[in-house]
């Protein structure tokens, strides 16, 4: 296992906790989490709903600040980033895949992909050209002018991946990317992301409650009640749901 001091690590969490206030009640969404993520690997955060996976991902993306503990991204403490830095870092160095993909329905597929390229500072025509190239690469070039609402889930998934990797980001964060997919499609998206991590030496972190996709991960981290309990090899994944077969 890599240590927190490894300069190659993209993400390092040390004893990170996040507590929300829900009325008068404190909700400990993440407790004392430790995590190191490095280039070339696909990590699955596996845990049931409400266990704190999404909170962890948003902490990693710098969208939330931790209540305690320290968090560094790309070798730099999160506290040293200004708001503007965080914004441009998300635009250039992090790719996002959301549950249900959240493509922008009012603009065509190609512009959905081009948008993140524009956010990272590319010119319009350059962004559109690169977006088309990516869609062709994913075998969905023919969908470029369609609106996302006209796409099947499987097609949306590919567009979402294309959007996430458009800027060739060092880190991809995917929250329940398989939730709306059939099993095979679920495997597809994880495979695409896995290929990306391997070939480009990038890091992908996937949060899921879907035990079946854990098989494809380089590492599976169990998230239970806000704790990242075990940095386990993939065959330990079954501990999360004792008694249920691994798909």
């Amino acid at each position: 296992m890599r240590s927190a001091a490894d300069p190659c690590s993209y993400v390092v969490l040390k004893n990170v906790s996040k507590t929300f206030l829900d009325g008068d009640q404190k909700v400990h969404a993440v407790r004392d989490a430790c995590l190191v993520a490095s280039p070339g690997e696909l990590i699955v955060l596996l845990g049931p709903s409400g266990s704190g996976k999404t909170t962890l991902l948003t902490l990693i993306a710098g969208l939330l600040s931790p209540t305690s503990g320290s968090l560094s991204l790309f070798g730099q403490s999160l506290t040293s980033y200004s708001n503007g830095d965080l914004q441009s870092m998300r635009a250039k160095r992090i790719g996002f895949i959301f549950q249900n993909f959240l493509l922008i329905d009012s603009i065509p597929v190609v512009e959905n992909v081009a948008m993140v390229l524009r956010f990272s500072g590319r010119g319009r025509s350059d962004a559109l050209a690169r977006a088309r190239e990516l869609l062709d690469q994913f075998g969905i070039g023919y969908l470029a002018r369609k609106l996302p609402s006209a796409l099947s889930q499987g097609e949306k998934q590919r567009v979402a991946v294309a959007r996430a990797i458009a800027n060739n980001p060092e880190l991809i964060i995917a929250d329940e990317p398989t939730a709306s997919l059939e099993t095979n499609q679920g495997f597809d998206i994880i495979r695409l992301l896995h290929d990306y991590a391997r070939q480009e030496r990038r890091c992908v972190i996937v949060a899921t409650h879907d035990l079946r996709i854990a098989d494809l991960a380089d590492r599976v981290l169990r998230v239970v009640d806000g704790r990242v309990r075990v940095q386990c090899p993939q065959d330990q994944a079954k501990e999360v749901y004792p008694g249920r077969p691994v798909a």
Binding site: A61, L63, G84, Q87, S88, M89, R90, A91, K92, I94, F96, F98, L102, I104, D105, S106, M115, V116, F119, S120
Partner: peptide, 18 residues
């Protein structure tokens, strides 16, 4: 109506003013 879109823009790092 497009709350979610705007949240996505913000997450994806839309520049200030976008």
């Amino acid at each position: 109506e497009r709350r979610k879109d705007f949240a996505v823009f913000k997450t994806l790092g839309s520049p200030r003013g976008f």
